[in-house]
Amino acid sequence: MDLIWEGLRKALELLVGLDPEVLGITLLSLKVSGLATLISVVLGLGAAVAVALNEFPGKRLVIALMNTGMGLPPVVVGLFVTVLLWRNGPFGFLGILYTPAAIILAQAVIATPIIAGLGLAALQHLPPELRLQILSLGATRRQLVWLLLREARLPLLAAVMAGFGGVISEVGASIMVGGNLKGSTRVLTTATVMESSRGNFEVAFALSFILLVLAFSVNALLTHLQQTRRPR
């Protein structure tokens, strides 16, 4: 028990004292996972809309692949992204391996199928005739997409939260493509792993605690967005 209290005390100390290293790690985590989620929202929702609104051969296969993608193990993603970005790999010329950009890329690969899969489920859950009703009210294609997204906003925000939750908490890909370099690619999860392996449990606890607060705050904000502006 003492270890836990010590951890909480240490966390509070690091937070209240605005420890520059911890603050940097926290901000980097937020920035990297936030950007990765943003990219995934654009790509994932785009894919969800495209699949939901169109009939094409192999649609079931595509849906099955999207759903499989929701469970991509971060270490597998980490491995592929590392190989692709390796010095003499196909994208080695970009020179972004072991930079935050590489982590953003890997996390976007993890979050995109989550948001696409859950987003597609959200859109398919709408009554099938709603699309016809909206078109019959005179909507253009763009207006149709906007109204459908708005109508499915609650489960769609849940999809975004799931995507963000998936990447802010993953460690495998971040450590593989980022390298946990101090002051450059060290994020909350990779720092926690490192401190824990060194036996610095109170620091590891402090970092975990910050991670929890961060995940909670972002989701609380999204939940607030989700639940307001709904008439009672």
Binding site: P127, E129, L130, L132, Q133, S136, L137, G138, L147, R150, E151, R230, P231
Partner: peptide, 12 residues
């Protein structure tokens, strides 16, 4: 304009 058996109202 078409009206369906299900009113298909928006959540607002």
């Amino acid at each position: 304009t078409m009206v369906f058996q299900d009113p298909l109202l928006f959540d607002t």
